[in-house]
C-alpha cells in the first residue's frame, strides 16, 4: 500500500515556470554562464534534497550535488526536451548517485548494517531516548538495509516511499512506467519489512485472509 507521508514538506520556492526554464536552457546551451547560474540556483534545493534522499548519508551530498550540476552542464547538448529539464536533471543526479553507490559498495555494507543494528538497539534501550535521535538511528538501519538491495528496487523505493514523489514523476525520472515503479517499490518494501522482522524490529504482519 503506498505510504502517505506525514512529514512536513520542505518550504520551497515556487517552481520556476516552464517557459523561463526553457529559455534559460537555450541560453545556457549557447554558452551563457549567467543562464546556467540561474538554473543552478533554481534547481539547487530540489537536487540537493533528491540526492540526500538517495545517498542516505549527508557526508557525500555536497560533492554529489556539485558533480550532478557539472555533469549536467557538460551534457546539456544531449538534452532533447522529450522530458522536462527538471526530470532530466534529476535523472543525471540519480546516475551520479548510482556511481557513488557502486564506488562505495564493499564489505562496508555489512559493517554498516551491524553498526546500525547496534546503535538502534542502544537508542531503543533508553526509555527517554530523544525522538529525533531515534529517528536518525532508524534511518541508518533503513539505509543499511537498502544498501544491500538491487539498485532498481532501492531507487524506486526511495523516490516513491521516502522522497514521496508522485508516481508519474518518480517513474519518469527512472524511465519506467508507473506500474513498473509500483511493483519495484512494493518489492523493496517487502524486502525491507522482512529484514526488519529478521532483526527483530518489526513483528510479522498478521495474515489478512
Amino acid at each position: 500500500m503506498p505510504r502517505v507521508t506525514t512529514q512536513p514538506q520542505l518550504p520551497s520556492a515556487p517552481r520556476p515556470a516552464g517557459d523561463e526554464v526553457a529559455a534559460l536552457v537555450e541560453q545556457a546551451r549557447a554558452g551563457r554562464t549567467d543562464a546556467w547560474a540561474r538554473l543552478y540556483q533554481l534547481f539547487f534545493a530540489p537536487i540537493f534534497r533528491h540526492i540526500r534522499y538517495l545517498a542516505g548519508d549527508h557526508a557525500a551530498v555536497e560533492d554529489l550535488v556539485q558533480e550532478a550540476f557539472a555533469r549536467a552542464l557538460v551534457s546539456l547538448g544531449t538534452f532533447d526536451g522529450r522530458s522536462s529539464f527538471s526530470t532530466w536533471l534529476h535523472g543525471i543526479a540519480l546516475n551520479v548517485v548510482r556511481n557513488h553507490w557502486r564506488a562505495s559498495a564493499s564489505t562496508q555494507t555489512a559493517h554498516h548494517r551491524l553498526e546500525a543494528m547496534h546503535t538502534v538497539r542502544d537508542a531503543a534501550s533508553h526509555g527517554d531516548v530523544d525522538r529525533t535521535h531515534l529517528a536518525k538511528e532508524r534511518a541508518k538501519v533503513v539505509y543499511a538495509v537498502l544498501a544491500g538491495m538491487p539498485e532498481h528496487l532501492r531507487e524506486a523505493f526511495v523516490l516513491r516511499d521516502l522522497e514521496g514523489l508522485p508516481p508519474h514523476e518518480a517513474a519518469a525520472q527512472l524511465g519506467i512506467s508507473p506500474g513498473n515503479l509500483a511493483v519495484r517499490a512494493t518489492r523493496a518494501r517487502q524486502r525491507l519489512r522482512a529484514e526488519l522482522e529478521a532483526m527483530g524490529w518489526l513483528s510479522p504482519l498478521e495474515d489478512a485472509s
Binding site: 500500500m1 503506498p2 505510504r3 502517505v4 507521508t5 506525514t6 512529514q7 540526500r52 534522499y53 529525533t132 531515534l134 529517528a135 536518525k136 532508524r138 534511518a139 533503513v142 539505509y143 516511499d161 521516502l162 514521496g164 509500483a182 512494493t186 518494501r189 517487502q190 525491507l192 519489512r193 526488519l196 524490529w201 518489526l202 513483528s203 504482519l205 489478512a208
Partner: peptide, 20 residues
C-alpha cells in the same frame, strides 16, 4: 501487497523521512 496496510513499517519510514 497494496491491499495490506502496514502501519508499523510506515512509522519507521516516517522516521526516516523525518531524519532526512
Amino acid at each position: 501487497a497494496e491491499g495490506r496496510p502496514d502501519p508499523a513499517l510506515d512509522a519507521w519510514l516516517d522516521d526516516v523521512s523525518a531524519a532526512v
